[in-house]
Design a binder for these strands. Structure first.
Lengths: 153, 153
DNA sequence: TTTATTCTTGATAATAAATATCAATATCGT
DNA sequence: ACGATATTGATATTTATTATCAAGAATAAA
């Protein structure tokens, strides 16, 4: 099994557990959205609109609201993270692992998004939180600026 | 002159310069909003609604849209920063100095916001950007979790 | 399997934040 | 003071997201 497939399976289990714990139901629509999301958007940052348009191609009966609700569910269950890069639209990203955190550099010219991770920042951050007796649930670091291409001109 | 007053004067100059450079006009409304904002909201994170309601007390003729537009102008001119803590409303904060950056810990229980700054994070961050040939214009770090009070229960 | 309960879905309406419109007014250079 | 241009306030519009609700689907119980 490829690492990607394994990752997907792990998320699936987490999601199923969440469904069971909260006494929700597993449905065909949720399956469809799960597959589309984890097959095609790993490492991407998709808006609800985009995912909906994409899914509509092969599953025209799935409704807009369902995609909204399901992505929210993904977030709540911890298998996706919600991002907001300042254009007013929420973006969703499949998470890679329960522990890995990464951050984003957003080019304000072309919209390109570069991901990065940095251990030192992580540890500083937890240190600061500890100092303030603050229980960290989540965090996000975003750098806005110009990417190398857009800086040239 | 107090440090706070000095700070306000510096921002005023930056704003005036911006106004001049962009061939905009200085108006009574902008003066009013500037004063209200820098007198009462240093270190705070005010929504447009809140600021509007506040200003309406003494200046009932100032319109809602003007407050919106003016805060946007403050942001563009670099004397205020816009924040978004996930409740769907933009928040504005007077900046303290052109160079100082600080970050936020947001308690998801009570909404309390704790500010912090960390040199080490700053330098890591710039290092990462440099490595990616990314020209940093701005950045934000937000930690979500439970503050000490809300963790007790 | 049938029934009962509860959750989910899809279509659409509603909400809420932010922006656009526009006639009247204020500002500023000449 | 005049003329060009920007701003204002009221309101309408846009846009993302959430709520509503009847019909349908999934699970548990009988």
């Amino acid at each position: 099994m490829t690492p990607v497939a394994k990752r997907k399976m792990e998320r699936r289990k987490t999601f199923n557990d969440y469904i069971a714990r909260k006494q929700l139901k597993s449905t065909k629509q949720r399956d469809t959205i799960f597959n589309e999301f984890f097959n095609n958007y790993m490492g991407k940052h998709v808006t609800v609109e985009e995912l909906y348009e994409d899914i509509k191609q092969n599953h025209p009966s799935i409704g807009f609201a369902t995609v909204y609700r399901t992505l929210k569910l993904f977030k709540e269950s911890g298998i996706a993270s919600e991002r907001n890069f300042g254009d007013g639209k929420a973006r969703y990203e499949p998470i890679r692992s329960e522990t890995e955190h990464h951050h984003h550099m957003i080019c304000t010219e072309c919209g390109q998004i570069v991901e990065f991770a940095n251990m030192q920042i992580e540890s500083c951050l937890h240190q600061v939180a500890k100092l303030n007796e603050f229980g960290v649930a989540n965090y996000k670091l975003e750098i806005y600026g110009k990417c190398s291409k857009c800086s040239e001109g």
